[in-house]
Amino acid sequence: MTTDKLAESKAFYTQILNFGITFENEFYLLLHTPDKKTNLVFLLPNHPSQQPLFQEPFNGKGMFLTIEVDVIYEETKKKGVEIVIDIRDEVWGDRHFAIQDPNGIGIDIVRYSEPVTD
């Protein structure tokens, strides 16, 4: 994601979602999920070291992340994070809630399960 909110993104993902820092410098932030299986990258817009394709800033719309974890709802609330979609069970089996990062990205925190059939 190309954004001028590197510090805010770093704080959010490391303090709220327990991501780790793989690498960072003044214009680039590479994070990893707690299990180290997935990476997330943040880059300052219009940085001269990057090709034009990677310079356009993200506009905050049309993107969301889904993170499959055991539900951490109460822990997230205790950290003072605004819950955008309250915790709920869906008919297709998922239990989830949603929050939003400093860039406007919706984050769906989900525990996947089989649907309950009668």
Rank of each mutant, 00 (worst) to 15 (best):
G93P: 03
K61E: 15
I83M: 01
I83C: 05
I67Y: 06
I83P: 02
F54W: 04
V84N: 08
S49Q: 13
F54R: 13
S49V: 09
L65W: 04
D70H: 14
Q51S: 11
K79Q: 05
M63G: 10
I87L: 05
G93I: 06
Q50F: 01
L65S: 10
V81F: 00
P57Y: 01
G93A: 02
E90G: 04
Y73T: 08
N59Q: 13
K79F: 00
V71M: 06
K61C: 05
E75A: 11
I85W: 08
V69W: 09
N59S: 08
I83W: 01
D86H: 11
Q50T: 11
K61G: 09
V81P: 01
F58L: 08
I83Q: 03
G62T: 11
I85Q: 15
T76R: 02
G62M: 03
E56V: 10
D94F: 01
P57N: 07
G62E: 01
F54N: 12
L53Q: 13
R88Q: 15
I67L: 11
F64W: 13
I67K: 07
E82I: 07
K78Q: 13
Y73R: 11
I85C: 05
I87Y: 00
L53A: 11
G62H: 06
E90N: 14
N59G: 06
F64T: 10
F64C: 09
F58R: 07
Q55S: 07
P57H: 01
Q51M: 14
E68F: 07
Q50C: 09
I67T: 09
K61L: 08
E68Q: 15
D94I: 03
Q51G: 08
V69G: 07
E74L: 04
T76P: 00
I85N: 15
D89G: 06
T76N: 03
V84G: 09
E75I: 08
V81Q: 05
G80K: 12
M63R: 14
E56Y: 11
Q50R: 14
I67E: 05
F58Q: 10
D94S: 06
G80L: 04
M63W: 05
Y73F: 02
Y73D: 07
D94H: 08
S49E: 14
D86F: 02
E82M: 03
V91I: 13
I83K: 06
G93N: 06
K78E: 12
V71C: 07
D94V: 07
E82L: 04
K77T: 09
I67C: 02
T66L: 00
S49H: 13
E75Y: 05
K77H: 01
D70G: 09
W92D: 08
G60Y: 03
E90T: 12
E90F: 03
E75H: 06
K61D: 10
G80P: 03
E56S: 11
E74I: 08
Q55K: 15
V91Y: 05
P52E: 14
